[in-house]
Write a protein that binds this DNA or RNA. Structure first.
Lengths: 337, 337
DNA sequence: TGAGCGCATTGAATCATTTCATTTCATGCA
DNA sequence: TGCATGAAATGAAATGATTCAATGCGCTCA
């Protein structure tokens, strides 16, 4: 228990400096000595103490990542991308789940600061201005994730939700639909606003097409089901022939309500497009057409920007990376027959 | 930047020892001095360096937690319970996602050891014998989560899956069903084996009841759908009138296949019980009866045992805590009319 | 007045690692 | 043989918070 470099040094008959060199720059040490030291490490079961390392180094070997919801596959994929990229530089990702709660978010930021992380990646709850100001004031490299910004103090990595909205609506129009409806809310979520804006752009290009906005209180299956039930009751002339849901959960609710009961069919009477391309989307009763985001790439890119900023905080130009989403076509939008 | 207790001490005109006392035992310091020191801390923006604290203390202020799948709501609830309990003792939970991958699991264990965590909570991948042996050899307090064991070297916190299986089957029998089928696999998952065993016990108590085992390769929606489609095609005499799925995802697949197409209804022709009571379960087309596990309680209890062991490693008697699951009745098992 | 008490404060030592200026030593070359 | 060279190894210093034995100080009471 509690073996230190000093114990290893004694055992191997060398100095502590040499043990440290074996650990960090084995090429600077003669092969014979390296062997002796490695043998001593094994015999004693020595495990490096990260705290001492970090104290000496002035900062930790980790990056903090705060997501809005760990159980959302989008964020777990982002985390995976970040971990893999960080591992390339021998760094670890500390994962915090804010659960859209500002107090939890603030608690994680405090923790990360005490831990002297290299920097923080995060998807802020609300506008988080005060917390962002504090991070900037303290000079902690910070990259905003899935949150477009023009703030020049921070880099950001996001996906073009306007383009995603356009893709979805364009696809519906291309497959012959004309009476579109966008389902989602609340409208002050930037994802909702942007996706709707993109859809609007596409509809505006097409003379005889219309787009209705149907608001929900949240992006959940239940909310989608309720909207779906309301739509089911409408007269045929009032009914949209295509629905674009702000995310896959809402889309699944719509699908359930429309296809379960009554005479309507998907995609026969109504086509549905979701957003996020979660696993459930392809496993739905009618496999769901959706918009896929390059989640892992978002994570790795964010780490990349973070490390570059951490290396040269003054010179590094903050960047705003925006990825393009991708349309994944499945049965729920097959053309009308 | 880089303010230390020394800077704070200078600013406040006191010694470093006093600053430390203000931080850790403010009642031992005169109120006037406390104010001076707090003011200096604010003015300088001093943030404690965890690495130095941990170095001195000999161990970190955290507990490691490794789960099989962060996106499974069961595990995020466990994590929440653990975090809350740990916070009571001023500790942090480092969350690692093994994703049922032994290499990732091993990497997290290494990390936690270098960090000198208080101990490790984990839900091992496979039998993990070698990793468990290593933890024991090094004297790292370890609590197994959601993994019943009789191993006297480790405490464990789990849910009685046999009882859960019994509850589910008993409920189906009580509501008048007689031809039961259990759907799930692979059978070497202890959850699958135990839940099936419990269901078998219940069926054995009832003279005219039968239980069929229908295997799946994994516990996913898709696998459930496939089984559901096969059942839909059976002749009425061959068809079960009640299905008990090894988890809610499988149950949802079954529900989709049975209730979407064809003449069968749920619960009219076939009743369905799931397991885990995930959010989706109550939002399904037919709200799903399910077995709920006290997930947060599992997490907090595990931390509890861990801390008691960490305090007195030699005296503390390892414990095997087993919680009882709970039946949550919804529409999918309404009695036959 | 001075001994005795207790609260408040001090600051050197400690934790484990890394770094780097210095030392050691073998080798090659004149 | 004497000297220069450079690779290898050394060990003291530094990182920042905490602890604890020692000290200071104000007060009471004889």
């Amino acid at each position: 228990m509690g073996m230190s470099v000093r114990d290893v040094a004694t055992r191997a008959g060398v100095s502590v400096g040499t043990v440290s060199n074996v650990l960090n720059r084995p090429d600077k040490v003669s092969p014979h000595t390296v062997d002796k030291v490695r043998a001593a490490i094994d015999e004693l079961g020595f495990v490096r103490n990260d705290a001492a390392r970090q104290l000496r180094a002035g900062r930790s070997l980790s990056i903090g990542l705060i997501v809005l919801d760990v159980s959302n596959p989008f964020f777990t994929d982002v985390a995976r991308g970040a971990e893999d990229r960080a591992a390339e530089d021998g760094l670890t990702v500390l994962l915090g789940n804010s659960d859209e709660n500002e107090d939890r978010e603030a608690a994680y930021l405090d923790l990360f600061e005490k831990q002297r992380v290299h920097g923080v990646l995060f998807s802020p709850v609300g506008d988080a201005q005060s917390r962002l100001d504090a991070l900037h004031r303290r000079g902690i490299p910070t990259v905003l994730v899935d949150r477009p910004t023009t703030d020049e103090r921070f880099s950001s990595v996001a996906v073009d939700d306007v383009a995603g909205g356009y893709l979805a609506a364009r696809h519906l129009l291309d497959t012959g639909r004309r009476r579109l409806a966008f389902v989602g809310g609340p409208r002050d979520l930037h994802q909702v606003a942007d996706r709707l804006a993109g859809a609007t752009n596409a509809v505006d290009e097409t003379a005889d097409a219309t787009l209705e906005y149907i608001a929900t209180d949240a992006l959940t299956v239940l909310q989608g089901r309720q909207v779906g039930e309301a739509i089911r009751e409408r007269d045929a002339v009032e009914r949209p022939d295509a629905l674009f849901a702000a995310n896959d959960l809402v889309a699944m609710g719509l699908l359930q309500a429309l296809s379960m009961v009554g005479p309507l069919t998907v995609p026969g009477d109504v086509a549905i497009v979701g957003y996020d391309d979660i696993d459930f989307a392809s496993a739905a009763v009618v496999p769901l057409t959706s918009i896929r985001q390059p989640s892992a790439l978002i994570g790795s890119t964010a780490v990349d920007l973070l490390l570059r900023e951490a290396e040269a905080p003054d010179e590094f130009e903050r960047q705003h990376v925006v990825f393009q989403p991708e349309l994944v076509v499945r049965d729920s939008t097959a053309p009308k027959v």
